[in-house]
């Protein structure tokens, strides 16, 4: 079974096997659900059938991903929102409530679709938040600015290869 995706897809984290729709910033639920059930979406949009072993691994990976995203929400974003003073440093600007709200919306979306979790979630020192994941020389960042706007930035070997604005509307 092999179908081509008709949507323009933006890779989320390297190695995640999942994608976020670049035009609408909404993870395509039908595609993601299909991928995570019994198939694997490649970088070209190809869908291939997975083996039973892969399915078992995928289930535990999905559970792990969901838990990790929930930790990001509970232990970082909610905590930062409740206690912003913990991030007040002399020359740095802690995450704004707009940035926290946008980051939380993204995190919930990614949690619900069990996308690969970020390896680092940190304030950017300018009122925003960075969520980052990497594999080898490839890294992807979700950059949430202080006004809540979001960009996905793909970097390979320290060079920015793409930067796309996402709308949360």
């Amino acid at each position: 079974m092999s179908t081509k995706s008709r949507k323009r897809m933006l890779p989320w984290f390297p190695g995640s096997g999942a994608f976020v729709d670049a035009d609408t910033a909404v993870a395509a639920p039908d595609t993601l659900a299909r991928v995570t059930e019994d198939q694997r979406l490649t970088n070209d949009g190809e869908v291939t059938v997975a083996s039973p072993d892969t399915l078992a691994r995928d289930t535990s990976e999905r559970e792990f991903a969901t838990e990790q995203w929930q930790e990001v929400i509970d232990r970082k974003l909610v905590d930062w929102g409740r206690n912003p003073q913990q991030l007040e440093y002399e020359e740095l600007i802690p995450p704004t409530r707009f940035a926290i709200q946008s980051a939380a919306a993204i995190a919930m979306l990614c949690r619900d679709h069990a996308l690969a979790p970020p390896m680092r979630v940190v304030p950017d020192g300018d009122g925003g938040i960075i969520l980052e994941r990497w594999k080898g020389s490839l890294s992807t960042s979700i950059e949430v600015a202080r006004d809540g706007t979001v960009e996905v930035v793909v970097v390979e070997d320290c060079r920015v290869v793409s930067r796309q604005v996402l709308s949360l509307e």
Binding site: L87, M119, R120, D124, G125, E132, W134
Partner: peptide, 26 residues
């Protein structure tokens, strides 16, 4: 860099976050 921001985490494959060198409005 502030420790609370976790811009340095020796447990990660990339222990130093690039945002440690991202300029802010100040």
């Amino acid at each position: 860099i502030p420790a609370t921001f976790e811009w340095y985490n020796p447990g990660l494959g990339k222990p130093i976050a690039w945002v440690a060198f991202k300029p802010n409005e100040n």
